[in-house]
């Protein structure tokens, strides 16, 4: 397991989601237009490693959050914002939330996030937090 901080651990094997290693992310390469914003995308393995580091230090809930985050690394930026919006109270029907959960599980292989959304759907149903017709 890599040691903390991963940034300075040569064994951490950090690379961008597009496959570049850390050392390739340079100012010169940026000026040359070779590096894009996608090259700053943390990959799943690094987040899973951070989740494990948090867990071993006794921060279990943070570890769970980082495990969800690891799943979400593959979700495009725009869609992740949409997903969040759908989860806000009063935005979605129960069926829409279930569809969101399924999408997370099936398209993005994100079972922890999928379960999290299913759980929210059930609570929203019980607590009247699903989308309602406009009040006026």
């Amino acid at each position: 397991m890599p040691t903390y901080p991963l940034y300075s651990d040569p064994h951490a094997d950090l690379h961008t989601a597009s496959g570049r290693v850390l050392g390739e992310v340079t100012v010169a390469a940026t000026v040359a237009g070779e590096i894009t914003l996608d090259d700053l995308q943390i990959d799943k393995a690094a987040l899973q490693a951070q989740a494990e580091i948090a867990r071993q230090a006794g921060y279990d809930q943070l570890a769970q959050n980082l495990a969800r985050a690891a799943e979400l690394t593959v979700v495009p930026r725009a869609e992740i914002i949409d997903m969040y919006q759908q989860l806000r109270p009063g935005r979605s029907s129960h069926a829409e939330l279930m569809a969101l959960a399924t999408r997370l599980e099936e398209v993005y292989a994100a079972p922890i996030c999928g379960a999290f959304v299913r759980e929210a759907a059930q609570v929203y149903l019980e607590r009247n937090m699903l989308r309602r017709p406009p009040a006026f």
Binding site: L40, Q41, I42, L47, N65, L66, R68, A69, A70, E71, L72, T73, V75, R77, I80, I81, M83, Y84, L87, R88, P89, G90, C113, F116, V117, E119, A120, V123, Y124, M129
Partner: peptide, 22 residues
């Protein structure tokens, strides 16, 4: 919480969304 336009789940998801971008 609802007046603040979130639920604990949406906030939890938001936290994960941020973390997913480091």
């Amino acid at each position: 919480f609802v007046d603040g336009d979130d639920s604990p789940w949406s906030k939890g998801f938001l936290a994960s969304a941020y973390a997913s971008r480091g």
